[in-house]
Amino acid sequence: MDIARLEAIARGCRVQIERMLTHAGSGHPGGSNSVADLLVALYFGRLRVDPKRPDWPDRDRVILSKGHAVPALYAAMSRAGFFPESQLISLRKLGSPLQGHPDRNALPGIEAATGSLGQGLSIALGEALGLKMAGSPARVYCILGDGEIQEGQVWEAAMSGPKLGQPSHPLDNLCAILDYNKIQLDGFVTDILDLEPVVAKWQAFGWAVQEIDGHNFAQIGKALDQAEATKGKPSFIVANTVKGKGVPWMENNPEWHGKAPKPQEAIRAIRDLLGVSEAAWDEYLTRDSATKAVVDELAALEKT
């Protein structure tokens, strides 16, 4: 898939992230926006999945271990056809399959219950191993947060990954991706518990490590190709990202880790995401009816 198209899809997903978080009144915009490009790169042109058969045994799996960024996953899944876009605004509402953190039993296509940080990579190891034993061609992708890898269980899994299944079933069907946006809930990762040297650490644990710009679709695609071509060991991609990517006043700001925008803030964020000036906005909306509908819906939210 060409890069301009992936960028357009990612922009659309980020618009949906602002929309759904504002309707929910809570959630995590910063980490959703930082991971969005990685998820779009996976769901559009990479994953072998069929939204009509979410339980297809040989499907590729995505485990979003940093479960708080699930709005980005819901946006990508809905765009990919797993459920209608209209359902996105049920996020975090009573009875909705779009739980505040991923629930495997609530929404078909969610592969693991995550959000309790540190658990996803172990699950990914087990799935990758089980798929290998079954002779399945499926691949497993696990997306970790940077703050998340401060959890001890991640390092148990890190030590286990290159060894598990050897020699007959090495986990080269597994690719873990670190959404390295440098900010966690309480502040900057370097101030709370620095991860560096993070590339050297995963290399030392025996993973095939690459480091990329996690917002550059060419680099993401190439790294995923190389992970697929790597044999005998699991891959680990350190994706350098920007927290709140796409909304200038959210970028690199710890304040937007876990706070939903208000309707007017969301509208401004959407305008910034689309790169439209304030002066040109009204005129722009006359030409983009889909965005206008989202904006009207958000504006109505403020009145209620």
């Binding site: 996803g120 191993l129 286990s160």
Partner: peptide, 20 residues
């Protein structure tokens, strides 16, 4: 999996999801 019970439990969950 070595002396790493949390990882063992998670790996077991993953294996179960793959049909084991």
């Amino acid at each position: 999996v070595g002396i790493a019970e949390a990882n063992m439990i998670g790996v077991a969950a993953g294996l179960a999801m793959a049909g084991k």
